[in-house]
Design a protein around this nucleic acid. Structure first.
Lengths: 108, 108
DNA sequence: GAGAGGGTTCGAAAGCCTTCGAACCAGGAT
DNA sequence: ATCCTGGTTCGAAGGCTTTCGAACCCTCTC
């Protein structure tokens, strides 16, 4: 299983990043990744099917929000905190802190 | 011309706000509003038709990002900076500062 | 080599988004 | 009253999103 392609830091686009973050399922994934260094897809606990989860992870990866690397039989996902901070200072932190407030209820 | 409905501060939803900000045309509108206290729709200079502009302004308004009030024959739009800051501290600022970097080229 | 586990890809369905022009509405000016 | 101006609403077209199950691919283990 090869490591999938990722955009370079200077290729990150604000609209794409914001769009990737505008979905409740993906926000939940980002929240799960925050604080954890790396997580396997199966540890994200998203309430969707395997194929849908794979799709959401691809959206996050293509937007430059997460990094995915192959590790044996599974894939480990982590936040590209530093790259995001370099391109859009403060954005990820403000999104993550805003997440606490009244998002959980609609992630059902 | 009546003032259209706006969501209350405690009704703002993060995914909706991020989605509203994920469109290049709307980001351009937000940038134009930043720094100006109030602008008429026609002063926003968005490269779209009247009806499309009206639609984008509605999306921003419904997400709680802008405030629209009737003033004679026209409508004045402004950013709800304080409400956004109260709900999602730092978000608007980080988006606006990230806007400078490489967004203009794709707003064609 | 055969299997099992973890993810991806394919194809399809349903819904939402963006965009436009045409028609409309409301205030102000003539 | 009539018209002009600035915006909204309607209806429609086209594209993109989200979602799923089925089939597939890798890698590790037996």
């Amino acid at each position: 299983m090869r490591t999938p392609p990722h955009p370079a830091q200077d290729e990150l686009e604000l609209p794409q990043v914001l769009h990737a973050l505008s979905d409740p399922v993906r926000l939940e994934i980002v929240r799960a990744l925050d604080g954890a260094s790396e997580l396997a897809c199966s540890c994200l606990g998203a309430p969707v099917s395997k194929s849908t989860l794979s799709h959401h992870l691809k959206v996050l990866r293509d937007a430059g929000i997460t990094w995915t690397r192959a590790e044996g039989t599974q894939r480990l996902v982590s936040l590209r905190t530093d790259d995001l901070e370099a391109c859009f200072p403060g954005l990820l932190r403000s999104v993550l802190s805003g997440l606490g407030r009244g998002v959980a209820r609609q992630v059902v």
